[in-house]
Structure formats: structure tokens, C-alpha cells
């Protein structure tokens, strides 16, 4: 935490507010970067570069707006630019969409598997692991909306996709996540052996 931001520094490239607001959001930007790229070191490069760009273009931030949204957008642009140098964007996975639709069709199975464990406090690692396995197009939307609490419209802007696409990817991403968690719960024996009598 930066608690000693210099109040006398008026240079445009070194605004004292930057340290407080933007730096406090680094966990969020890192999580978002991880949702864009599977490789942790690529994500670190995205964060590093995004913060440098954000710092240099601080004047483009509109005070009073959500600074995380601004930082997510910069991170996304950095990611796209790095990708142009590498491989093309992976097209949205039809196969995964089919799995998501199947998960929806297996609603009763998924809900039955997840319901008894949803309130467990030790579910975090399993959710995190399931999230990491989501196809990236779904993952970025789920991370922005479900973890970072961004409105659909903000997620659409950050990712450069229509709001309707946010809506459908969110739906499918969540269903995929549920399916993989239910699978995990059964495989890991998290479900109670007896069908009833779980503690309230």
C-alpha cells in the first residue's frame, strides 16, 4: 500500500491519485489478465505493460468513473496487441458451447450435485480450478461479471463484444462452471454418502 503519495507533485505523469486507486486494483487486473491468457507469465506481462500504459495515459482516465473498468480495457488492449505478434485469436469454441448446452440439459443432475456443497467455505479452490479450465471467451466474461462485479455493459465494452454476446457467454460460462464443479464434487467425494440428513 502506498500511503505516502506526494501531495506536492503536480506532474501529469505522476498523479498522486494513481498510487491509491490504480494500485489498489492490481489484484483485479491480475485476475482479469489471467482470464485472458492461460499462461501465468503472459498474464504478468499484460499487467506490467497495462500499468505502464495506464500510468502514462492517466490523463485519459475520467475521474468519478470506475477505474477498474478503465484498467481492464487497457489490459485487454495490451493483450490483443501481444496476441497479434503471436497466434490469432482462438475462435469461440463450438464444442464448448455444446457442452454448456448439454450442462443446461442436465440441469437436475448438476443442481443435485452442487446443491449440497454450495455453502461450503472450502469450495474456493475447486471453483478457482474450474474457472481456470473454462475456454477463454467464457472465462473473461465470467471473471468480469461474477468476480469483478462489472455490469454487462462494462464487460461488453472492455471485451469489445455486444451486450447480447456477454449475456450468452455468461450463461454458457456459468453452466460450464456448474457442470465441472458438480463433476468435481462427485469425483472428490464431497457429496455426502447418504442422500439425506445433511446438516442445516
Amino acid at each position: 500500500m502506498m500511503t505516502d503519495a506526494p501531495g506536492a507533485d503536480t506532474r501529469p505523469t505522476a498523479p498522486p491519485e494513481f498510487s491509491a486507486a490504480a494500485i489498489a486494483a492490481m489484484d483485479d487486473v491480475y485476475r482479469f489478465a489471467r482470464s485472458l491468457t492461460r499462461d501465468p507469465s503472459d498474464a504478468e506481462d499484460v499487467v506490467q505493460d497495462a500499468y505502464l500504459r495506464a500510468f502514462r495515459s492517466w490523463h485519459t482516465f475520467q475521474p468519478g468513473t470506475d477505474i477498474r473498468r478503465w484498467l481492464f480495457t487497457i489490459a485487454r488492449n495490451v493483450f490483443l496487441r501481444s496476441r497479434e505478434r503471436g497466434q490469432r485469436e482462438v475462435t469461440l469454441d463450438d464444442e464448448q458451447s455444446a457442452v454448456a448446452d448439454a450442462a443446461q440439459a442436465q440441469e437436475a443432475w448438476v443442481r443435485g450435485g452442487l446443491d449440497p456443497i454450495l455453502d461450503r467455505t472450502d469450495l474456493g479452490p475447486a471453483i478457482s480450478a474450474a474457472l481456470a479450465q473454462l475456454p477463454e471467451s467464457f472465462r473473461a466474461v465470467v471473471v468480469l461479471v461474477d468476480l469483478e462485479d462489472q455490469p454487462y455493459e462494462a464487460a461488453a465494452e472492455v471485451l469489445g463484444i455486444p451486450v447480447g454476446t456477454v449475456r450468452s457467454r455468461l450463461f454458457r460460462g456459468r453452466k460450464l462452471l456448474q457442470h465441472s464443479l458438480a463433476q468435481h464434487a462427485r469425483d472428490a467425494g464431497l457429496l455426502p454418502a447418504r442422500p439425506s440428513g445433511s446438516p442445516a
Binding site: 489484484d27 491480475y30 454450495l118 471453483i127 474457472l131 465470467v142 461474477d146 468476480l147 462485479d149 456459468r174
Partner: peptide
């Protein structure tokens, strides 16, 4: 409850 559990998993990953 599912969405709350996902939200709670937010702290699993930090910079």
C-alpha cells in the same frame, strides 16, 4: 447461491 460461491472464490487468486 452458486453466484455467491463464485464471488467468494475471488480471493483465491491474487497478484
Amino acid at each position: 447461491r452458486f453466484l455467491a460461491a463464485v464471488q467468494a472464490a475471488r480471493t483465491e487468486e491474487r497478484c
